[in-house]
C-alpha cells in the first residue's frame, strides 16, 4: 500500500499533525501548532507555512479547514497570505511574552509538584485544573476566555497566556 509521507518539498520548516481524540476542532489544532512552533523557535518571521494542498493530502483534512486556520492566524496578526505563493509568518512572538510564559510554566510546575506530593494523580490534576478554569471563566475572572472561533477582543500577537482556548499547546 501507499505510505503517506509528509512531503512539503522542504518549503515549510514545520509539519502538522492531528490529535483526533482531543475534541479540539481541527482548525484550532493547526493554529495551536503554529503558535507552539513559534514559541519554541521552530518557526520564525518570514517562514512559510505548509501549503494547503500538502496539508489536505497528508492529513486527509478538508481544505476549508486549513484555510480557516490560516485565516485565524491572519486575524491574530501572526501570518499573512501571498496570493499564488503561500502563507508566511509575519510576526515572531515578542521576547517579553516568552519570558512571561516561562514564568507561568515554572509556577505551574511548582503547583504540580505540590499536587503530586499530596497524592493527586494525573487525572486528578487535570480535573482540578478544569474545574478551576471553569470557575474562573464562569465567574467572569480577570480576563474572559475567547469564544470557539478563537476571536479575541484584544487580537494580535501570540503570547496571550492563559487566554488560549482549547489548551492544546
Amino acid at each position: 500500500m501507499v505510505t503517506v509521507k509528509p512531503d512539503y518539498d522542504g518549503l515549510s520548516p514545520i509539519v502538522f499533525y492531528l490529535d483526533r481524540g482531543s475534541g479540539v476542532p481541527t482548525y484550532l489544532q493547526l493554529v495551536h501548532q503554529v503558535d507552539y512552533a513559534l514559541r519554541l523557535g521552530f518557526l520564525r518571521e518570514g517562514d512559510q507555512l505548509p501549503r494547503i494542498k500538502d496539508v489536505t493530502r497528508t492529513l486527509a483534512v478538508n481544505p476549508d479547514t486549513v484555510m480557516k486556520a490560516y485565516r485565524e492566524l491572519e486575524l491574530r496578526g501572526v501570518a499573512a497570505g501571498r496570493p499564488g505563493v503561500g502563507t508566511f509568518i509575519t510576526q515572531a512572538p515578542d521576547i517579553a511574552g516568552l519570558k512571561q510564559m516561562a514564568g507561568l510554566q515554572r509556577k505551574l510546575t511548582g503547583w504540580l509538584g505540590e499536587a503530586a506530593a499530596a497524592g493527586v494523580d494525573e487525572l486528578g490534576m487535570k480535573a482540578l485544573f478544569a474545574s478551576a478554569l471553569r470557575n474562573f471563566s464562569d465567574g467572569g475572572g480577570a480576563a474572559r476566555l475567547p469564544g470557539r472561533d478563537g476571536s479575541d477582543a484584544h487580537g494580535g500577537g501570540v503570547a496571550r497566556g492563559a487566554r488560549q482556548d482549547g489548551g492544546a499547546a
Binding site: T3, V4, K53
Partner: peptide, 16 residues
C-alpha cells in the same frame, strides 16, 4: 492506511 490515503487524495482533488 488506505483510508487515510484515499481521503487525502480526495481532499487534494477538492482543493485543486
Amino acid at each position: 492506511l488506505a483510508r487515510q490515503d484515499v481521503l487525502g487524495w480526495l481532499m487534494t482533488r477538492v482543493a485543486e
